[in-house]
Amino acid sequence: MLYCFNFADNINNFYALFLIMNPQKIYILGIESSCDDTSAAILCNGKVLSNVVASQKIHEQYGGVVPELASRAHQQNIVPVIDQAIKQAGITKEDLNAIAFTRGPGLMGSLLVGTSFAKSLALALDIPLIDVNHMQAHILAHFIEEEGYQQPDFPFLAMTISGGHTQIVQVNDHFDMDVIGETIDDAVGEAFDKSAKLLGLPYPGGPLVDKYAQQGNPKAFQFPKPKVGDLNFSFSGLKTAVLYFIQKKVKENPKFIEENLYDICASLQYTIIGILVDKLKKASKQTGIKRIAIGGGVSANSGIRNAMKEGEGKFGWETFIPKFEYTTDNAAMIGIVGYLKYLKGEFTDMSVVAKARIKI
């Protein structure tokens, strides 16, 4: 086969062409430290060989993530987590072809730990360094090679839902993405957790709301859906409505939460899912795109996952839902972005710095 290209083509295209003509095993170490989970993963040509996550339990007693404690825990966890990931993958650090790390967005102290370690290890091993956008990684987690999982074709709509983000993104290619809708205040994950706190549930409360909702009546109580223009979201008003509702009902009956916990959780979750689905329906209609993918920690919610699948029959969607382990913060999603960038020869240098806020 004859390959021709103009000499003016950039070095990235030349590198991609070289890899096509010289297939090899490419090992990528992914490092994720954007919030309170320290994670490391090894990928070989898009397949996950290991994906180790160390969670931080200390934040439970404070009802939320404490940034300073998170960064200190990352310092303690990062070496053993990376060591375990390499051993589970059955390789040595000398086998690595590149190191991918989360540059942002996230907590600055947490990001600094991962960024600094990635830079140091890449320098020591004399291998390329690849910076990764955390939110892009949630979307591109759909391109991890898993047996039996069909990857979405372009273009598709991705809804990223987490404790810090709620976005609708039109994905035209791996690195061609347009945010067409986002929250103007609080994220959906915060709405779940803060509402759960009002119900006396421990942090993180979102998974408990999901658990209890499965045993309750989703139409037992009505909560308002915020009216926000176009494709944007707002959840601050919903949190306030839940607060006033609980205060009123508890004043009338001190045992109201205890007697109605399942129904409250089911009604809250039903309202939130309705908000998300309504926006996706509108986005799909506006763009004409019916391929829908979800990502981010809140996409682990069973009610949301069921609603997405139901959308196939109701709205003609083709839905893509990642494995649970690839929804929450994890290094496998960082690794797949690293692999895709490696194929394009898109590396960064040692001057790269972490950024708490960074757009897709």
Rank of each mutant, 00 (worst) to 15 (best):
P204C: 04
A331E: 09
S110T: 03
P152R: 07
K194N: 12
D178I: 09
V337A: 09
A16R: 15
N12D: 04
Q222I: 10
K239Y: 04
K225D: 04
V179Q: 01
Q61L: 06
V132A: 10
L231T: 13
Y62D: 05
L43G: 03
I130M: 14
L340H: 08
K344E: 02
N217Q: 14
E312K: 02
Q247A: 08
F324R: 01
T271C: 15
V250L: 05
I86S: 01
F324K: 08
A122F: 02
Q247M: 10
V66H: 11
G164E: 00
M333E: 04
G313K: 15
I127E: 05
N253D: 15
D83I: 03
T327G: 01
D349W: 00
M333N: 01
S120Q: 03
G200Q: 00
G345M: 11
D230H: 10
K87N: 09
D176Y: 10
K227W: 02
G316Q: 14
A98L: 05
L276F: 09
V179H: 01
S110D: 05
Q286A: 10
L343C: 07
G311N: 14
L49I: 14
A124C: 06
G316D: 07
G335V: 13
L121F: 02
T319E: 08
G46T: 00
F101I: 13
A196M: 09
N253Y: 13
A70E: 04
Q88M: 03
P202S: 15
N12Q: 15
P67H: 06
T319F: 14
L17R: 07
G237Q: 12
E68H: 13
P226C: 06
T115C: 04
T38M: 08
E190V: 10
F315Y: 15
L49N: 06
V52T: 10
T287C: 13
G205T: 03
G189H: 15
F117G: 12
D153E: 15
I334V: 13
V188A: 09
I31S: 02
D263V: 00
P128W: 06
N217A: 02
I358M: 12
E259G: 14
V171H: 01
D83H: 07
P23W: 01
I42Y: 04
I91A: 07
V188T: 05
T166V: 15
K344N: 09
D193V: 11
S39R: 07
S116E: 14
L280N: 15
N51P: 01
Q76M: 08
V66C: 03
G46I: 00
I82S: 01
A16G: 01
F256D: 03
K281S: 08
K119V: 08
H142L: 03
F256C: 04
M21V: 09
T271D: 14
G303I: 00
L17T: 11
P226N: 02
L19D: 13
T160V: 15
K341V: 07
I42L: 01
I82V: 13
E346K: 06
E182I: 06
A354H: 08
N301E: 08
A98R: 09
K119A: 10
D83T: 13
G90D: 10
G335D: 10
I127Y: 07
S299K: 14
